[in-house]
Design a protein around this nucleic acid. Structure first.
Lengths: 191, 191
DNA sequence: CAGCTAAGCTGAGGTATCCTCAGCTTGTCA
DNA sequence: TGACAAGCTGAGGATACCTCAGCTTAGCTG
């Protein structure tokens, strides 16, 4: 199995400069055009030749993932903070909220993260895994406190997370149904 | 406002033949490669020049929508059938199930239908609207029977539908969480 | 059945984006 | 200061998009 490429900060000073410039340009481009933004544009905005972009990020997915890595880390630490509180259900829902927001920072992100999710050996699979564990832990706590039905699996929780993020990503700003979706899943619809 | 193009069956016999051949080829291609399948491939499979494809379907969306129009119509009639039964809640959930299946017949479909949804004046906006009404009617009936919380709006129901379809579309066949998502939204998670 | 005409078809070609790689430039370290 | 590997460049082949000028033909009309 060829080792999956994980973009890491290069050693030489000029390499780092370019790496950062590309990442910045990519963030701006993705936020504007979604994850399908032109990579040649990104390279140009970063003031770098297209080959340099591909040197640092051999695939579109690796670039997308690099732009969101910080956010994933943040979610892990956030989970730790939240689990220190004394209301496990509130902690869980607050975290889900943050996660949904992060997973929908630009169009197309959820789809890519979902792939990383399922496909072992994707650039940010490890990171996703860590985040998965954080969420699962919050869920376990809420279940232990008897606040959440015991038969809910982490997978089901994450499906809910992904679905809500997709909804948010595809909504017009004024018409974001993700919060409602979460509420309904939590409280139920049937009387 | 330029009138939105609605692909309709052309008049001449050769035109109809080609229209149908393209539609068939497109169905096969979309099912295999998702909604981003190469239109040049589609044209080739249909035994037709690329210009002919564009003559009949001026945009990718119009082709995608044409391939699924029948299904949408089916959903409308299905709603009528179901509403004849005597269990409004069962009718609603059965219909949601069908709708989710239809909306996820190939990768990328939900996204396109969601656009048609929001953007007035899209090829199949009218059809979507009809379907929307069918679903809303089923919902109203279930609410009237006191089986569904009265504050649930049709929009929220459709968000749930879209989200579930997206989940199904993006899952590996063995890992389809859409049914669970629906169940959870219906029954709730919190104890 | 011949002739006309508009509906319909064709496919070359301009544009955009992807991604690679051979060769050049430059940071770093001794 | 010299050597060399890390890094950069950008031309170019491949693919797909979409258009449009010119050709073909279905179907009508007398």
């Amino acid at each position: 199995m060829p080792h999956p490429h994980i973009a890491r900060r290069p050693k030489r000073a000029d390499g780092q400069r370019n790496y950062d410039a590309i990442l910045g340009a990519a963030r701006r481009a993705f936020e504007r055009d979604g994850s399908e933004a032109s990579l040649e544009d990104v390279a140009a905005s970063a003031g770098v030749a297209i080959g340099t972009l591909y040197r640092h990020f051999p695939s579109r997915a690796s670039l997308v993932e690099a732009t969101t890595r910080d956010g994933l880390v943040l979610l892990v630490t956030r989970a730790e903070e939240l689990s220190a509180g004394d209301d496990p259900l509130a902690a869980l829902t607050a975290w889900m909220d943050d996660a949904v927001r992060h997973f929908s920072t630009f169009r197309g992100l959820v789809g890519i993260l979902t792939q990383s999710w399922y496909d072992e050996g994707t650039p940010s699979h490890t990171m996703c895994d860590a985040m998965h564990d954080s969420g699962a832990e919050l869920l376990r706590a809420a279940q232990a406190a008897g606040r959440v039905r015991a038969d809910l699996t982490p997978e089901e929780l994450f499906d809910l997370l992904l679905a809500a993020a997709w909804l948010r990503e595809n909504a017009t700003p004024d018409r974001d149904g993700s919060a409602r979706l979460l509420t309904h899943a939590l409280e139920g619809i049937v009387l």
